Simulated assay, not measured.
Amino acid sequence: MIILKGITWDHPRGYDPLVAASKLYAEQFGVKVEWQKRSLSDFGDQSLTAMATENDLLIIEHPHTGVASETNCLVPLEDLLTYEQLQQLEQQSAGPSFLSYYYQQKQWALPVDAAMQCAASRPDLMGEHKIPATWEEVFELCEALKTQDLQVGIAFCATDCLCTFLSLTAQFGSSVRENNHLLVTREVGLQVLQLMRTMRDNFHPNSLNWNPIQLYDHMTAENDIVYSPLAFGYTNYSREGFRKNKLCYHNAPWTKNIILGGAGIAVSASSSHAKEAAEYAVWLCSAVIQNGVYVKEQGQPGNIVSWKDDAANALTNDFFLNTIDTLTYAYVRPRYSGWPAFQQWLGEALHQYLKEDLNPETVLNQLQQAYAASYENHL
């Protein structure tokens, strides 16, 4: 039996469906995939080239495709799969997920998981309050909740400061794009920095410490946060029995230009079984598997067929139908090889700005200069 090694991220959404699907694949095709986990922070920051030397299959984020293109540590999937196989998955892509892994005329991964920042609520605590559709309504809800000793929360750790900044600058008309002269325009940059400061001052005080998982763990265990306007969605928390209380997910305020997340499955250039690994990846991302064992075992499919499926939505409290518009119009980050290191620095700089109440104009100047340097070093 051929045994493939894979590396994914440490959460039921990122691990459980892979293990369950791989067991089924071994039974059907005689190829076994052994999955190992890395932390959520390492998922975004760990060296792609280092992981590729030790594994056949990698679960990656789309911003790392530029590193793959520059280092050739992954195999372009055009070299392993047919045009028809790739075309079918492109047609079944959940939002821009498939194309987010297409860089420099090569397909570096297939979308196995789709995600974007979105809103979440505790429906049992919302009462008569309506779900905000705009940022103005978010702060109106925040003020109304204060009269009931209830709060709004957000994931504002360094990584999620970065993601919120990118979503808001895109929504306010200055998307961070590859080849930009500036990271953002001065007007929009200052506007967003001030808005993030207003969020810090009005939302739950622990928000600065939380990633989405920590935010949702708090929301489902405690009874003080009613609503969150922006954090990467996890269907797990909208499923029966996953936590003490169940969340409901919604489109983000203003809906469009919210940052795309998710994960892709890629084949290492170091693999001795690259063809077998690619065939497994296609099978895993197919509609029948994504809408079967994958979604049933805590997965969040990258295949749109599952997002529109009645059974998948019944399983997840309509997570997919409630957020599909945000996914459809999601914003895709830059993917040049200097971006992963820059986005890590950017998140830390934004978190420091909020934590230490730094001068926004000084911070924005630093962001602009660091962006230019990151690009100039990786033309």
Rank of each mutant, 00 (worst) to 15 (best):
C118N: 10
G6C: 10
Q369K: 15
A252G: 05
A314H: 03
H129C: 02
V67S: 02
T82V: 06
K355D: 14
T159S: 13
D113T: 05
N202Y: 02
D325R: 13
A311N: 04
F43Q: 11
Y353M: 10
A263L: 08
T185N: 12
T185M: 06
I259H: 01
V267S: 08
V288S: 15
L162G: 07
L358C: 12
M116V: 12
S121G: 10
K23P: 00
M116D: 05
Q148D: 13
V188I: 15
Y329E: 08
F156C: 07
F165V: 08
D10T: 07
R38V: 12
W254M: 15
P253T: 01
A266Y: 07
V288L: 09
G6F: 06
S121M: 09
G14S: 07
L327R: 11
V332F: 05
L162H: 13
L57M: 08
S207W: 05
V19Q: 11
N365D: 14
P360G: 02
L110F: 13
L364R: 02
L18N: 05
W9Q: 02
P132W: 11
T147M: 04
T65K: 04
G44S: 10
V305Y: 05
T8S: 15
V267W: 02
I60E: 10
G299C: 11
T134V: 09
N55V: 05
Q28M: 13
Q87C: 00
M126N: 05
